[in-house]
Design a protein around this nucleic acid. Structure first.
Lengths: 234, 234
DNA sequence: CCAAAAGTGTTTTCTCTACACCCATGT
DNA sequence: ACATGGGTGTAGAGAAAACACTTTTGG
């Protein structure tokens, strides 16, 4: 390796993962937080993070942290923002890139979650987090809100099969407001992205609600043709 | 300083600045590019960047690079994305955070620009840039396009006083398409963010066009009340 | 048979779009 | 008086919003 840049300083580089999960039963958006196991700020609540290794891509570091914690390997994960204030981490100067992921709350490997001291916490009742982690979460929520309107990411938070009621409740949880049932269904179905299955979910009602499935192929056809997902309902 | 993290590797951290300028005369969006003065890739076209110093905030590093190049100190600058592939820079593994700035093409200190080997290049005729810089520009343009629709950042690219014609031409340059004059004026004026001045610009026409000014106070009133700037015109 | 949740259409309102002529002025 | 760019309104189409009753079925 050439020593071209040897006069410049090096820094610790880390990633922090903001893992959102949707709890279909409680109809709440949750965040995965961990009890930090090392100094500084040991035993405080924190996002899960990790240092970027030598010869490891930044994105790969984020995936590694996520998979160590949840067992999930292949996942929608998006870089959000990089935090680089010199004093953000009292242990040393660390530049940290925050990523966020959307998962169904039950997709997670419970073993791994427990052994890492991770817990789901409702976003409306978050604990105090270390460093600038609360700020990160706030920014990620803000971005999620915008994202959810313009791209069909909501489906990432649900199991493969879901009912329209569940989908609506998810949007209500994210938007933090009520949505009109008829308008919601009209709009989402008119996009032709959902496939109605022959199966019904019969736990929450006697009549039962039809399951639907997100059709990724159709979505890709649309996007390549300059289609713009836009879910903005009453 | 505690040696808490000493077992982890350190990395070079850099910033790259994507500086967009609007040329009010040529009605074109331009990008500031420089001829790189050092190895590797010496004499190739590049964004202007720099390594983050010891004890320097990430954002401050971006501001420093910008001000060295343009003389502009106080500016709207936004972090875009962090690029962290291990082989993106052939000189060494460098994690680089890209920022973009919007300025009027004439706000710049010409001395500084020349002495740094910087040039304005129309975004429709960009040269090949080093490393992943073309990718950065493409991403920044994409983000600019979305941003411009949802936030009144267009004004950053214009001088304090501007005519509605100039503002429309700016949006046409960014969107890369014609906008209906009457619809544009109707929409932008209905937002009540512009202040009509008593002065006219009389260079480009005999009749003269009234100057307007962006009213930041009004904008702040709106945003705090949950207002959403939305410019999406014919 | 009734409670509980699923499912379904229509009307009104508003926003977006398309479109063409008059105005002011310097030469 | 005319050429040049600045400025203005309206009608029609399409999208968003408001709104309430019927259906199914397990207990």
């Amino acid at each position: 390796m050439l020593k071209l840049y040897s006069k410049y300083p090096k820094h610790f580089v880390a990633v922090d993962c903001i893992i959102f999960g949707y709890d279909i039963a409680e109809k709440e958006l949750k965040l995965l937080v961990i009890k930090r196991s090392f100094e500084p700020a040991k035993d405080k609540w924190s996002l899960s993070g990790g240092f970027v290794k030598e010869g490891e891509n930044l994105d790969d570091a984020a995936s590694r942290v996520l998979s160590n914690l949840t067992g999930i390997t292949d996942l929608y994960m998006e870089q959000m923002h990089t935090y680089g204030s010199i004093d953000r981490d009292p242990g040393a100067r660390v530049v940290s890139t925050a990523y966020y992921a959307l998962i169904g709350i039950h997709e997670i490997d419970t073993e791994k979650k427990e052994s890492n001291g991770a817990h789901w916490r409702s976003i409306s009742r978050l604990p105090e987090l270390i460093f600038d982690h609360n700020q990160m979460v706030k920014a990620a929520l803000h971005e999620l809100l915008h994202k959810v309107k313009s791209q069909p990411v909501g489906f990432e938070l649900l199991p493969e099969k879901f009912t329209l009621v569940q989908l609506q409740e998810l949007y209500e949880a994210v938007y933090q407001r009520k949505i009109d049932k008829r308008n919601f269904r009209k709009k989402i179905l008119s996009m032709n992205l959902l496939e109605k299955l022959d199966e019904k979910e019969k736990v929450t009602s006697k009549k039962g609600a039809f399951y639907y499935r997100f059709n990724e192929e159709k979505y890709n056809t649309f996007t390549t043709n300059g289609f713009f997902f836009n879910l903005d309902v009453t």
